[in-house]
């Protein structure tokens, strides 16, 4: 079923979405057949593109909307949002 899944996520790590988190996000998003996007209040990024994610320029505390559409949208949301929850393995 090609449903659209959405989830509000928050950037928790102190450095914000810099190169390494962006790399992790894109790597994770690429595992799914669904299209995955991350929206800030004034921009939208393809979660499979590290450069796109970087241009969101999201510092700590930013609220973002994670959106996935496709056959494995639910899994994609879970997988990507887990990275945010784990703060990309930083700040520990």
């Amino acid at each position: 079923m090609d449903g659209v899944q959405e989830k509000i996520i928050r950037v928790g790590n102190s450095l914000g979405i810099h190169a390494r988190p962006a790399g992790k996000i894109s790597q994770e998003a690429q595992r799914y057949a669904s299209s995955v996007t991350i929206c800030s209040k004034d921009a939208e990024a393809d979660a499979k593109s590290i450069l796109d994610i970087l241009t969101l320029a999201a510092p700590q505390g930013t609220e973002l909307i994670l959106r996935a559409q496709g056959p494995d949208a639910r899994e994609a949301i879970l997988g990507v949002s887990r990275l945010f929850e784990e703060m990309f393995g930083e700040d520990r």
């Binding site: 190169a19 894109s26 790597q27 499979k48 593109s49 450069l51 796109d52």
Partner: peptide, 16 residues
């Protein structure tokens, strides 16, 4: 390695 990894991701970036 993290830097190389992020470079690799950029290299694979389909949009770029």
């Amino acid at each position: 390695a993290a830097i190389i990894e992020s470079h690799l991701m950029m290299l694979k970036d389909h949009k770029f």
